[in-house]
């Protein structure tokens, strides 16, 4: 944006009569302040998501947010959109159903690593395999935050959690690699420090057709960082700032995260592949020909 455009876009304001917070209309203000701990990164990601949604100029009546259980699952309750707070791990099946019943919707699944990858792991890989047109925003804070800091499938080796007090010795999931191998068409990873890049990336995912996956590495000051003696939220943000390496198009096999090791961020995958709905229409038309009555929406339009 040039300086002239910035001036044109700048709202008129004086000290006393400032315009309202740009994301205020996007939030359920009566529920603020939210339950997330001081220094938690989830609020930052919601801020980026709200701004990406506003910049994308989408009709907010046709955007739905689906969340599972956990700290990140609370997002569905705080956004002023059509939102679902679903059962544990089942956010993606709900989202798939919504997208197939009403393909006009932009469906965003906003949930945590424990919900999406652990208990919802099967739904995740199969939605990616089918290339269902949903956008997945996965907040990875390396632990189960809401239930007390237990070992998650993303906890790095040697990190301490409440169920591994002598250190974790399990190999964690490399989420971008998992998403790419299962068939996602858009895979990116950012941290809560990279707010501008994250906003841009969410905007790209909203425009992309197909299964888009964005992993956001976030901090959990209350459980993960306190147990591992890393410090508070700001210390983790400083670590993200110093240890992040931006590598667009990096092979996802090499982007695993070690305990307090370097974090490779960027856009790793951006390909085109026919979606579930396209393939269904094509196959059904080929088989049934004139007998095929079209997808649910077309039937509704015809009455």
């Amino acid at each position: 944006m040039t300086e002239e455009q910035m001036i044109a876009a700048a709202p008129e304001g004086c000290g006393e009569c400032l315009p309202p917070n740009p994301v205020e209309g996007f939030l359920r203000s009566e529920r603020m302040p939210h339950i997330w701990c001081p220094g938690c990164g989830i609020g930052t990601t919601v801020n980026c998501f709200a701004r990406a949604l506003l910049q994308a100029k989408l009709d907010l009546n046709k955007v739905a947010v689906v969340s599972g259980i956990g700290c990140t699952g609370r997002v569905a309750g705080y956004v002023n959109l059509d939102s679902f707070h679903t059962t544990h791990g089942r956010a993606i099946p709900f989202a798939t159903g919504m997208k197939l019943a009403n393909p006009e919707l932009t469906v965003v699944v906003y949930s945590g690593d424990g919900d999406l990858i652990s208990i919802g792991g099967n739904h995740f890989i199969h939605a990616a395999r089918r290339n269902v047109d949903v956008k997945i925003i996965c907040i990875n804070n390396f632990t189960y935050g809401m239930t007390g800091g237990q070992l998650a499938p993303t906890t790095p080796v040697t990190a301490i959690s409440s169920t591994t007090p002598y250190g974790c010795y399990e190999q964690p999931f490399n989420l971008p690699n998992l998403a790419e191998s299962a068939g996602a068409v858009y895979v990116a990873r950012w941290t809560t420090y990279h707010v501008r890049q994250l906003t841009h990336s969410i905007g790209e995912a909203l425009r992309k057709k197909g299964f888009s996956f964005i992993e956001i590495v976030s901090q959990c000051p209350t459980l993960y960082e306190r147990r591992n003696k890393i410090g508070d939220g700001l210390d983790m943000m400083e670590y993200f700032k110093e240890s992040s390496v931006v590598k667009h198009g990096a092979p996802t096999r090499e982007v695993g995260i070690g305990f307090q090791g370097p974090i490779v961020v960027g856009k790793f995958v951006d390909i085109e592949r026919p979606t579930f709905l396209d393939l269904m229409d094509k196959q059904m038309t080929r088989t049934l020909d004139a007998h095929y009555t079209g997808s649910v929406v077309e039937q509704n339009v015809r009455g």
């Binding site: 709202p11 400032l18 740009p22 603020m32 989830i42 609020g43 801020n47 501008r196």
Partner: peptide, 19 residues
């Protein structure tokens, strides 16, 4: 520049440009 508004996890702060 509104970077504070983008970072704020509590939606408590935002920046505005003035002409």
């Amino acid at each position: 520049c509104d970077l504070c508004g983008l970072y704020c996890p509590d939606f408590a702060i935002y920046g505005v440009m003035q002409k």
